[in-house]
Amino acid sequence: MFGGGGGMDPRKLQQMMEQMGIDMEDIDAEEVIIRTPDEELVFTDAEVQLMAAQGQKTYQVVGEPESRPRDGESTAESEASETTEGDAGDDADESSDESGPVTISEGDIELVAMRAGVDEETARQALEDNGGDLADAVDQLE
Rank of each mutant, 00 (worst) to 15 (best):
M1V: 12
G3Q: 11
G4R: 01
G5R: 08
G5N: 13
G7T: 01
M8W: 01
M8R: 07
M8F: 00
D9T: 06
P10R: 02
P10V: 08
R11Y: 08
R11N: 14
Q14E: 15
M16Q: 15
M17C: 08
M20L: 14
G21N: 03
D23M: 04
D23N: 10
D23H: 13
M24Y: 00
M24A: 11
M24C: 08
D26I: 06
A29L: 00
E30C: 02
E31Y: 00
V32Q: 08
V32S: 05
R35P: 01
R35K: 12
T36Q: 00
P37C: 09
D38T: 14
D38I: 05
E39H: 10
E40D: 12
T44L: 11
T44C: 10
A46T: 03
E47M: 05
Q49R: 11
L50A: 14
M51N: 01
A53Q: 13
A53N: 02
T58Y: 02
Q60T: 15
G63P: 07
E64F: 00
S67R: 15
S67V: 15
R68Q: 06
R68M: 12
D71Q: 08
D71P: 01
E73K: 14
E73P: 07
S74L: 15
S74Q: 12
A76G: 13
S78E: 13
S78V: 14
E82C: 09
D87Y: 08
A88H: 09
A88K: 05
G89Y: 12
A92G: 00
S96M: 03
S96F: 05
S96D: 12
D97P: 07
D97G: 05
E98H: 08
V102F: 04
V102P: 04
T103L: 07
I104V: 15
E106W: 02
E106K: 13
G107Q: 06
D108N: 11
I109V: 15
E110C: 09
V112T: 00
V112C: 05
V112M: 08
M114K: 11
A116L: 04
G117K: 01
G117N: 08
A123D: 00
A123R: 00
Q125A: 14
L127M: 03
E128Q: 12
E128D: 10
E128K: 10
D129G: 06
N130W: 03
N130R: 09
G132C: 09
G132W: 04
G132M: 02
D136T: 12
D136P: 05
D136Q: 13
V138H: 05
V138P: 06
D139W: 01
Q140M: 09
Q140L: 12
E142Y: 01
